[in-house]
Design a protein around this nucleic acid. Structure first.
Lengths: 213, 213
DNA sequence: GTGCGATGTATCGGTCCGATACATCGCGGC
DNA sequence: GCCGCGATGTATCGGACCGATACATCGCAC
């Protein structure tokens, strides 16, 4: 997962570790908290050993004379190699079942802009399948095992079920959009930089949690 | 986390590994997929070494003569010890920041029936705080960095933001209910099927064995 | 009588996290 | 002038948990 994300990000521009983490955090903020250095640095080393990334000389700007009295400290900048790009493409093409869990799906989705449409569709449908299964599992528990569980546990399941139903609907929309060849929804004016904020996403109709079909 | 969940479950009744996994999966289905045996068995061993659980003799029913021509195979049943119960109570009392991430919160919430009200409130508020921070982060990205990100990444953030807002609202409700001394909402009739325990009334404060420092 | 799915215990390699350590830079306050 | 302090930056270590895999038994259907 981390490997995939790093290869994806480095295709946009070379970066050093700290920067990479920040970009990663920004890009995947909706999925996971923040990449730990404890996984980032070892992974970078691994990717370098595999020849998928290389160290790029720290650009000394153009006219920076100061020749390094103090050796110009750390700052290791990495850039992706041709093999690295191949590897990334290969990881996308493989995109199988392991891609459908929460983290795996999120990370792949974040790089959909670099993914061909057929694969996008395949991933979206695989994810939907998986969430539908989770949803059925939760319905079963809520239906059959309800009397065995305490009120808090039930409430947790109910909330989870709600999230599943919502995600399925979201995926349906995305799938429909893919099929019709349009870009991802974004029905609002994101990116126009002006002053949206807050008023997008009117509370969807109903708002009552728990309308079971 | 696993340690906590196991100690919690074994307080309901002794179980063997396989059973434990099934119960765990049912109880935490909304949070995580399924506990792997690769973590379950080692953890059981660890808990046993610490003296928090012990092997209980496989109950040979009452009149089961068949004395074991075939040695009556595996099936190791574990039960919690007094020290284990203490440990569980201690883990609840500690409930700090690490309790507020997705998994940690979910697992603790699943055992709220064994948690005193003050701690429940503390955990719910800590979680809300954390989600609010994540929400602000997402709003920032959607507001400030929007033009740097592609439409798919933005859509992902939007969906994540939506989920955050929804969870905050959910937590608000739960907090309000806690403060008013009522049980978790469940305002609906999910799965009632046979109508269990009408209106699952207010938990008299003494519902759980459980004291905090 | 044989295959097969559920039950059941167990290990191994690998990924990732959280805590920790340490060093430099720019800046504002005293 | 210099002192602290927060942001920048690299790095390691132990531990938690996963996914694949192995293997053995039971009951049942074909």
């Amino acid at each position: 997962m981390l490997e995939f994300a790093i290869l994806g990000l480095l295709q946009e521009s070379p970066m050093h570790g700290y920067e990479l983490r920040k970009e990663l955090t920004a890009k995947l903020g909706a999925i996971r908290a923040a990449i730990s250095y404890g996984s980032l640095y070892p992974t970078l080393r691994r990717l370098q050993a595999a020849g998928w990334i290389t160290e790029a000389a720290e650009t000394p700007a153009t006219a920076e004379e100061v020749p390094a009295l103090t050796s110009r400290r750390g700052r290791v900048v990495y850039k992706i190699t041709a093999e690295g790009k191949e590897r990334f493409a290969q990881l996308i093409a493989q995109a199988g079942p392991e891609t459908y869990d929460d983290t795996g799906f999120g990370v792949h989705f974040a790089f959909f802009a670099r993914t061909d449409q057929a694969t996008r569709l395949r991933i979206l449908e695989g994810r939907r399948r998986k969430i539908e299964e989770r949803r059925e599992g939760l319905r079963d528990v809520l239906g059959r095992a309800a009397e065995r569980l305490d009120a808090y546990t039930l409430e947790l399941q109910r909330h989870g079920l709600d999230a599943c139903e919502r995600e399925v609907r979201w995926l349906e929309e995305l799938i429909a959009n893919e099929r019709s060849g349009r870009a991802p929804t974004v029905p609002n004016n994101i990116g126009t930089a002006g002053g949206r904020r807050e008023d997008n996403s009117p509370p969807p109709p109903g708002e009552t949690r728990n309308e079971r079909p």
